[in-house]
Design a protein around this nucleic acid. Structure first.
Lengths: 203, 203
DNA sequence: CGTAAGGTTGAATTTGCTCAATCTCGGTGG
DNA sequence: CCACCGAGATTGAGCAAATTCAACCTTACG
């Protein structure tokens, strides 16, 4: 799947559920005038559109942030959770519950944190999640978000995103080089973000 | 249960799941410095803390917005969804999926809508939800939120909430009297909010 | 009455946005 | 090798939105 292409378009009736195997995707909602809010960032192992499949309609789109590899599960296999193998069912519940916890934290982040805290908090979350699936290389993690994507995740404008990243850079918390962000000082970053990772634990 | 009291405190290990039978409650997250974000408003029929029970820990609190009546379900009965009666299991899934859809919409609302749109959108959502459970009396609905609560739902300050409500009042879209908001012109309100109710449908 | 909780108001200030110009850097074709 | 192109990043000025804070008002209720 190509970077920047849609895995699922908002409003579609999905016929397969996608498991992300490699790369990054996001869920997003578009308003009629083009405003976009990214509501989730998916990493390898995550289900891209389980809720849409179960509800039989996508009220969000799923977009590929990078080139990625997706697994497909026929909708019938997961549409009715009561017909699933118990182990599978439990696994899906766990995922959904974790998604919900993350989504709740995103709401708090956008609603009640300052711009600086938001950016720092997002970086902390991604750091922990990337780490958890064994993809972090030292303190560096390869999140090739454009500033537009950052902005649409955090409910901010690109200009402001840029200024905040600069600020984090000047303070020595991160290093920037061509879109690759390296977190230099995770402890301070967590302090700045007011980050508590407990919402990310599996179950 | 008293208005303003906690049904579940953030961080607790819940031993029962609560079904709201009468009144309104909300889920909220507190930051260490006291900032609060309300992440959900619950109406009669809603489960207050199902996710917390299933995850075995509450990363959010549940507060009573009004005096309310709650049903209790022992945690063991719902903690493991695979041991449930299939009909019950399906029902819980549906609820969780709807909660998720609402939560996603809240994220979009806070992240990408203007203050005016936010207030209008919230009013539209509540109107539809109250309606769906048969509690709306004409165009009036009895949502006794304080402005603090409004602010904590929408990620704004109370001062600004007040000004926006005034504006809606001046435009003739709502009437205010003693905290009771009456929506006078729902169609225009939906227009102003950019409201699309499809995310609220049951399944 | 008196009190407390919540609502309202205004001024000063901060925060963040818009928009257009400029820059950077990795291609690409000559 | 080099000029050019396009996507994205960066910058600044001006502006709009929202916050803060303190003062004041209103209402419910004991």
């Amino acid at each position: 799947m190509e970077a920047r292409s849609d895995v699922l378009r908002q409003g579609e009736v999905p016929s397969v559920a996608h498991v992300l195997l490699h790369g990054h995707t996001c869920r997003y909602r578009l308003l009629s005038d083009g405003r976009r809010q990214i509501t989730a960032v998916l990493l390898p192992g995550d289900m891209c559109d389980l809720e849409a499949v179960m509800r039989g309609r996508a009220d969000y789109g799923v977009g590929a942030l990078t080139t990625c590899i997706l697994g497909e599960i026929p909708a019938e296999r997961v549409a009715d959770p009561t017909t699933l193998d118990p182990e599978m069912s439990r696994a899906l519940w766990r995922r959904l519950l974790r998604d919900e916890a993350i989504s709740r934290e995103w709401l708090v982040r956008i609603g009640r944190r300052t711009a600086l805290e938001r950016v720092a908090h997002l970086l902390c979350e991604l750091r922990v999640r990337v780490d958890a699936i064994g993809l972090a290389v030292a303190e560096e993690f390869d999140m090739q978000f454009t500033q537009v994507e950052f902005a649409d995740i955090l409910g901010m404008s690109t200009g402001h995103i840029d200024r905040v990243l600069q600020q984090l850079c000047r303070t020595g918390l991160i290093a920037l080089s061509r879109g690759v962000i390296t977190v230099l000082d995770m402890p301070t970053m967590e302090m700045v973000a007011g980050f508590d990772p407990s919402y990310l634990r599996a179950a």
